[in-house]
């Protein structure tokens, strides 16, 4: 479903992503692990089209998307839930969600249905429907960001560090929701995390990023046993 072929990405002349190739099949639930500054966000921004690769190709459903503008990629069904949430702070929860469904804007009943499903995952959003997103706590903003990215019914959802800076209880809740997005909604999910414990417990397999290179990949059960991963990301 997603295929990266020797992708290199530069930011301001610095090579951040170096020679990354990876492949994700339809229905998979895959983790991207790596410490701060390892290039996870840059890789996700490259896949979503916010950044363009210097060399290499990104294919989605057998179509090269690395030269397409971001909104075209969203229309194809690849949605990034970005780091820092990137919500619309002075718009209500309702409008943030409606804009999340922008590619479906002519289909009011589908938008209604998707919104109800988001409320099932995060009931608090329904209670705060008319509140501005900017007044929310970090955890609530993360819920809204995930909710917004589900509104357009993505085929592939990239989640960039959804647990960063959140309380353990909220991390647990968000982890459960992400797992059910993958299982119940049949959405392919690519999850980037520093919190390897959480990520390796819910995903099937993972890639480990270090200094912009993919240094390790495999099934989660194997990664959990790997000495390097345990030392660097689990702390055991």
């Amino acid at each position: 479903m997603l295929k990266l072929n020797q992708v290199h990405t530069n930011i301001g002349g610095m090579q951040i992503i170096q020679d990354i190739s990876l492949e994700i099949q339809k229905g998979e639930f895959v983790a991207l692990l790596g410490s701060n500054g390892s290039g996870k966000t840059t890789l996700f921004r490259t896949i979503a089209g916010v950044l363009k690769p210097k060399i290499g190709t990104v294919e989605f459903d057998h179509v090269g998307i690395h030269r397409l503008p971001v909104h075209k990629i969203v229309e194809l069904g690849l949605v990034l839930c970005p780091q820092g949430r990137q919500l619309f702070p002075e718009l209500s929860v309702e409008k943030n969600l409606i804009l999340g469904a922008y590619p479906l804007r002519s289909d009011k009943t589908r938008i209604r249905k998707n919104m109800d499903r988001v409320f099932e995952f995060f009931p608090i959003l329904k209670e705060r429907l008319h509140q501005h997103a900017g007044t929310f706590s970090g955890g609530e903003q993360q819920m809204l960001a995930i909710g917004r990215s589900l509104m357009s019914e993505p085929k592939l959802l990239l989640l960039d560090e959804p647990s960063v800076g959140l309380a353990p209880l909220i991390v647990k809740l968000i982890g459960e929701v992400i797992a059910s997005i993958s299982h119940e909604m049949k959405t392919t999910v690519f999850l980037s995390e520093q919190n390897a414990n959480m990520a390796l417990n819910i995903t099937q397999r993972g890639y480990v990023l270090e200094n912009g290179r993919c240094v390790l990949s495999g099934q989660c059960s194997d990664l959990k046993q790997d000495e390097k991963v345990r030392k660097a990301y689990i702390g055991a």
Binding site: V50, V79, R85, L91
Partner: peptide, 14 residues
């Protein structure tokens, strides 16, 4: 309003 408040966020919603 969305583009004014968060340009990249707006792009990412399509």
């Amino acid at each position: 309003e969305a583009v004014a408040q968060n340009r990249e966020g707006a792009m990412l919603t399509g």
